[in-house]
Design a protein around this nucleic acid. Structure first.
Lengths: 123, 123
DNA sequence: AAATAATATAAGTATATGGTTATAGACTTC
DNA sequence: GAAGTCTATAACCATATACTTATATTATTT
């Protein structure tokens, strides 16, 4: 989910589209003209932005007017910052990593020169 | 700048690294063990994160201990949200786009059937 | 219904990206 | 200084991505 959003944001053409949509709702052909880019190029980038839900679309006749989904953008970005700070325990996808991280204990490193008895305590 | 950051964030391995660094400073070999990934893989992803300045590094002997650059992450993300809302006029890179956007004026579309007036009325 | 306009999608291609294995470099310990 | 440890980089390969041109789809006007 964060990955999808950041992938969508990590591309110059799409960043420019978002910046323009922040000024004004625009249809594909407007973006085409304003950005001097081909129609498929705009269309394909919009598809990525819509899939990431950063852009909404409404139909007006044969036009598809695009708008910036500010609320989702702000919400997701806040969610991301919260996600980073919340405990690993909250994230089932990272339970393995949590376990291995805990093996570090107070130590600075799993591997050491005198690695000796370090990894032996399985309870 | 935003592009670099978002590109760095838009990849699952790197997101995982950041999440782990949010818990604790770690060296490359720790990440290797915790994530069960190869050393070059970790090293290469860290390079991207360091280039985006999302991760800082300090040397401790032969180790390179990595830490999450929270302040830059928060700062840049806020900058991005501000950037989206500030007027296009502030951005010299988009002066051409600004000009073309202004050609739209009150109209909803540059191109139209009747070119002169646009019908938005739904009956 | 035919012509046109706005948009989406398909197909092809070049480049970017993420992974691997192999090797080099930089410290540390002996 | 030799051996071992930690990290970076090089070389390679497979897949993903961003573009292009060509075509399909859908809505509107006549």
């Amino acid at each position: 989910m964060f990955e999808t959003m950041f992938k969508a944001l990590g591309e110059p053409t799409r960043l420019k589209i978002l910046k323009l949509l922040a000024v004004k709702d625009l249809c594909v052909c407007d973006l085409e003209e304003i950005m001097q880019a081909s129609q498929p190029r705009i269309s394909q980038h919009l598809k990525v932005l819509k899939q990431a839900r950063l852009v909404n679309e409404r139909r007006e006749g044969q036009r598809r007017v695009c708008s910036l989904n500010r609320s989702l953008l702000n919400h997701n970005i806040n969610e991301f910052l919260n996600y980073l700070e919340e405990p690993l325990e909250n994230n089932p996808d990272l339970s393995e990593e949590l376990f291995r991280l805990q093996c570090l204990d107070g130590q600075s490193c799993l591997r050491k020169y005198g690695k000796a008895e370090h990894k032996q305590n399985t309870k």
